[in-house]
Simulated assay, not measured.
Amino acid sequence: MFRIVLKYGLIAGVIVGLALVSVSLAYGGQPPPDWGMAAGFASMLIALSMVFVGIKRHRDTAGGGVIRFWPAFGLGLAISGVASVVYVLAWELSLVLVGGDFAAMFAQHMVERAEAKGLAGDALAAAVAKAREFEAMYRNPLLRMPMTFVEIFPVGVLVSLVSALVLRNPRVLPARA
């Protein structure tokens, strides 16, 4: 089972990591926020399809075509965990390769969104203070890395849940003889 976790977790991580690094390099670390978020989640879903493949592979080889929900869910979480760690490493690599100051850029974007909402006076000052607080916090890798992990891992939990629910039924994509 460890080989399946490692194999499919690394495949998923490399897929989402390559997408992340490619988009970061293509846009100099500043993709359009809405488009960048949509592309990021789409690449996560595509990459995390390896959770389904890994669970099915384990079910077909080690389980003789049968797997219960909890073992399938646990396997999916393990694959998602490996993929999430690779995603975090890819983000850190992106930050180094792009060389820009993502924390400052994102904080500035937060201020611009507050201004676009029409905030002024004390409300705008509070938004600016919150943006500066985020910027300072994001510069600390011990805080940034768990935040990055939490971007992808919940998607992996959801994919693991759906995959385990579907694949616990041996009639769904039955094992070939």
Rank of each mutant, 00 (worst) to 15 (best):
I46P: 04
E115T: 07
Y87A: 06
F41I: 11
I79P: 00
M37E: 14
A39N: 07
T61R: 09
T61S: 11
V53W: 14
M50T: 03
L45W: 03
G65W: 11
W70F: 06
M50A: 11
F73Q: 02
I55D: 14
S80Y: 11
F69Y: 08
A38I: 12
L77K: 00
K56M: 03
G81S: 06
M50I: 05
G63W: 04
A47Y: 03
H109L: 15
V88E: 00
I46Y: 05
L45D: 03
W91Q: 05
R57D: 15
H58R: 06
S94D: 06
R113D: 13
Y87H: 13
F69R: 01
G63I: 02
G40L: 08
A78H: 04
S94F: 12
F106V: 14
G99I: 13
L77Y: 02
R113K: 15
A78Q: 09
V53F: 15
G64Y: 05
L95S: 08
A103E: 11
V85N: 14
F102S: 12
R68I: 03
G64A: 07
V53E: 11
L119H: 02
E115H: 06
T61C: 01
S43A: 15
G40T: 13
A120S: 04
V82L: 13
L93P: 01
M50H: 07
E92S: 04
G74M: 02
G76S: 14
S80T: 09
A39R: 07
A83Q: 02
F106T: 14
P71L: 03
A104Y: 07
A38M: 10
F69L: 04
V98H: 06
M105V: 10
M44Q: 03
R59E: 11
W70H: 04
L77R: 00
